[in-house]
Design a protein around this nucleic acid. Structure first.
Lengths: 203, 203
DNA sequence: GTCTATACGCGGATAGAC
DNA sequence: GTCTATCCGCGTATAGAC
């Protein structure tokens, strides 16, 4: 049984990476099997069908990260510091692990109902709700729920734009640096919430 | 030749809608042919292969919209009014035409290099650049390029989150209304740029 | 320009031996 | 729990008649 658990883990790790890279449809069961160096038929011992494997891979990739994000938001630190730390973490998460980022985005875009429901539940209950709560304590300038959604949108959106920007002249590609984006988003959100206002003129 | 042009148009319209709905891999040439009520083989008279059809469909869906957005940004009106009108238009564009929205997002996520390059070129040259220009004239509180990217990110991100929120309790689903989002984004951006500051407390 | 017919490989999935 | 062998449908794409 110990062996089977680790095979299962290996399958999930390989599948997550492949799905993130090429999409669910772009990765066959044969591809996953090859990455783990087992026969395709063996996958079906661990997962009922491809749909079940996809769901498990999504869960595998997501659940661990959600816990970390939640911890940052609930730490014993000043509110604003927690918010900034969360933004830093989220930007890093996406840019340092593009596979994870794409997997998350894909979950919302390509997911069937079951996958989207899982994604929503995990992310919302684990991270979205505490973030909105923190924002509501920080300021009443903007709606907390919408603002929390805006933070996710900004990080995910900039990440996606960065992929597109690769095909563009240098001056636009400079926009896609994680540090610069992190600073920009913190500044944007901080200013709109009437927190301390760092000025951020163009370099 | 007149007949062939209109068949071509019909193919592009059908293909755009299908691709937006189910993704490029999720839509077969047979599917497209069925939607236009012709035989699959006939598609290959109009488009060399599936890749060519996808690129043409993307172009078909995108080019017209980019012109409209550009016009709004270059209109003879006060800067802030133009910015707000643009945000309104972009939010409406995504929420009233989810097929188009998904197609655009997919272009960035699933596209091969050629598709991403086309997407980047059209959107950047047509809309992104004028938007950044407008922002730079409005305020120097934030970097114009990053802020322009933030506006796209916010609209696209909220749109994607809205799809996920469908599976959630009512109080969160309320966040996904186009009007509310439009107001929120305008407020968020306006406040962060130090424009007139409408307060937007939670309802 | 559209059709019928068809080639051919890849995909998911199962049966059953070891 | 992993293997070999295999089924079968669907996908892209082409040939060639009308």
């Amino acid at each position: 049984m110990a062996a089977s658990v680790s095979t299962r883990e290996a399958i999930l790790a390989a599948a997550s990476a492949l799905y993130a890279e090429r999409g669910y449809d772009g990765v066959s069961m044969r591809d996953v099997a090859a990455a783990v160096a087992i026969q395709p038929a063996s996958l079906y011992h661990h997962f009922k069908d491809k749909d079940a494997l996809i769901l498990a891979a999504l869960e595998h990739a997501l659940s661990a990260k959600a816990v970390i994000g939640r911890d940052i938001l609930l730490k014993q630190e000043p509110l604003e510091q927690r918010l900034n730390a969360f933004v830093d973490w989220l930007v890093r998460l996406f840019f340092d692990d593009p596979a994870f980022a794409r997997m998350t985005i894909r979950g919302a875009l390509d997911g069937n109902d079951q996958r989207r429901a899982y994604l929503a539940k995990t992310v919302i209950e684990g991270v979205f709700a505490p973030l909105a709560q923190l924002i509501s304590e920080l300021s009443d300038a903007l709606d907390p729920g919408l603002t929390a959604a805006s933070i996710f949108s900004l990080v995910a959106g900039h990440f996606q734009l960065a992929s597109t920007f690769v095909h563009l002249p240098r001056e636009l590609r400079a926009l896609a640096q994680a540090d610069a984006l992190s600073a920009h988003i913190k500044s944007l959100i901080g200013r709109s919430l009437d927190l301390a206002k760092p000025s951020e003129p163009a370099p």
